[in-house]
Each structure stands twice: as C-alpha cells, then as structure tokens.
C-alpha cells in the first residue's frame, strides 16, 4: 500500500460523499460544501491516480493548482448568490417542484 494509493482511496471516498451530498442535501450552504468535498476528492484523484500508476508527476500538481483557483472562484460566486438569495427571500434552500411553470 503506497501513499499514492491512500490518496486515491481517500479521493474516491470524498467523491462519493460529496456527490451524495450534492444530490441529497437541500440546504444551499451545505450543498455548496458538498460540492467542495466532491471537488477536493477529484483533485486528490487527479494527483494520486497518475502518481500511483506512473510515479510522481509535476503536471498534475500544476493542474490541481489551477483547479483550486477555479473552485475558489466558483465557491465565492455561489456564496454571494446564496447570501443575496437569503436576504431577498429568507429561504436557505431552493423551492422544489415548481420549476416547470416559471
């Protein structure tokens, strides 16, 4: 069991948990956290899996750095939207089942 394999397993676990959270959790902030978990899981896999297969690789590190920047930007945007939505409506989750008639 190499450390890379450990990262892969942890990444897979985070991905699974994050995905379940994205689909099941209705509270907007928690859903955003679940997205971040999923993102972190993907980043771990992105570094760990190639390292496990072919040894350490600087390219994946560069990719994950870029990925983190993108994830931070997306999180910031989502936070602003959620905060504004809460101020305007007082709701912390999106209403269900009425998408069709809007």
């Amino acid at each position: 069991m190499t450390s890379a394999l450990l990262y892969v397993l942890a990444g897979a676990l985070l991905c699974g948990g994050g995905l379940a959270g994205c689909l099941l959790v209705r509270h907007l902030l928690r859903r955003l956290l679940a997205f971040n978990l999923l993102g972190s899981g993907v980043f771990l896999l992105l570094v760990g899996l190639p390292a496990h297969r072919h040894g350490s690789d600087p390219v994946t590190h560069a990719l994950v750095l870029t990925g983190i920047v993108v994830a931070v930007a997306a999180t910031a945007l989502a936070l602003v939207l959620i905060r504004r939505y809460f101020h305007l409506t007082g709701r912390v989750s999106l209403p269900t089942g009425r998408q069709e008639d809007r």
């Binding site: 991905c15 994205c22 907007l28 859903r31 997205f35 999923l38 993102g39 993907v42 896999l45 992105l46 990925g67 997306a74 945007l77 989502a78 939207l81 959620i82 504004r84 939505y85 305007l88 999106l94 209403p95 998408q99 809007r102």
Partner: peptide, 20 residues
Amino acid sequence: LEAALRYLFAALIGSLAYLL
C-alpha cells in the same frame, strides 16, 4: 437568483464529472 443558483449547481456537477 433562484434560476442562477440552479444553473450554477447543475453546471458545477457537470464540470466536476468532466474533471473526474
């Protein structure tokens, strides 16, 4: 805002699946 949040969440799931 509601439409944008729905859009953002759907798009984020899509991007992360793609990145995986």
